[in-house]
């Protein structure tokens, strides 16, 4: 894989009521503010379910983990969630050793993440699926 120093964050609509951020490159102390702003833009726009596509992320440090935790907190505050999609084995290992695999919902593919989002959304809107 070609190494990319830096990060690009591209927002898009992933499904009904679900937005996605496609990340390419490295999430570190310098690039993490870009990710924080992109997440906050979605939160401020009223998005509840946000997918973060990590398929093309080659590096993620503690600053990036902190940004993702902040995103989970803010989305859950407004009744939604943040789902992670497609992390490499090495990025997955970072979630495991920090224990954050218990906090984040991680899916191997976007389709599975969208299915989880739609089921959660349906459960919240269904009279029988309330809290």
């Amino acid at each position: 894989m070609e190494t990319t120093i830096g990060l690009t964050v591209t927002p898009r609509t992933a499904g009904e009521g679900t937005q996605a951020l496609d990340l390419v490159g490295e999430v570190d102390v310098y690039t993490a503010p870009l990710l924080r702003q992109a997440i906050m833009d979605q939160v401020d726009a009223g998005v509840k379910y946000l997918l973060i596509d990590l398929t093309k992320v080659e590096y993620l440090d503690s600053t990036g983990l902190g940004i993702l935790i902040g995103g989970v907190k803010r989305l859950k505050e407004q009744g939604g969630n943040l789902h992670l999609v497609g992390p490499s084995a090495r990025i997955t290992r970072i979630f495991e050793i920090t224990g954050l695999n218990k906090i984040f919902e991680v899916y191997p593919s976007e389709q599975e993440a969208l299915s989880a989002s739609s089921q959660a959304g349906a459960a919240r809107t269904s009279p029988a699926g309330g809290a």
Binding site: S62, L65, G66, I67, I69, G70, V72, K73, T98, G99, L100, K102, I103
Partner: peptide, 9 residues
């Protein structure tokens, strides 16, 4: 992890 601290790792 469950404390959701954003720093300190």
């Amino acid at each position: 992890a469950e404390a959701l601290d954003e720093h300190g790792r």
